[in-house]
Amino acid sequence: MNLTDGEFLLLASVMDIIVPPVDELPGAGEMGLAKEAEELAARIPAYGEALHRILEALSLEPSVRVEGGFPALDEEQRMSAIEFLEANMPKYFDKFVDLIYIVYYSDERVHERIGWRSGPLQPLGWELPAWDPAILDKVSKREPFWRKV
């Protein structure tokens, strides 16, 4: 799916509300992640449909039909416009939020902030403390209680 310039700006603006700035990181839209969202939506039909429906609904919603559109609204107005969609289009809105979370939490800058090791799980894996049979001290003293036949 290819977004128009207007849709792209709208998406970035909504993303900043869904995942706002934190610490040194700007909001998800300002981080430039709308492009990733567009690409994932193009690849996965369920996300593509959700993105299309939400952006379309948001551009038609009466409260945002002002000069400058959604980005020109104040924060409270933007919040209520999004909450309106959440309440009235829950199926598409859920997928839309998933899409934004996926691209946000795929980003290495976010990984660094939350202390997550970027990259594949293999081959590093994780270290766990070795198995210690002493943990069984209490339960292993219990008499067998499985039901006899």
């Binding site: 509300i17 995942v19 706002p20 934190v22 859920d94 939020v97 979370y101």
Partner: peptide, 10 residues
């Protein structure tokens, strides 16, 4: 459950 979006998200 999903982490809420918006101000409380982080």
């Amino acid at each position: 459950g999903r982490v809420p979006w918006g101000a409380d998200h982080h």
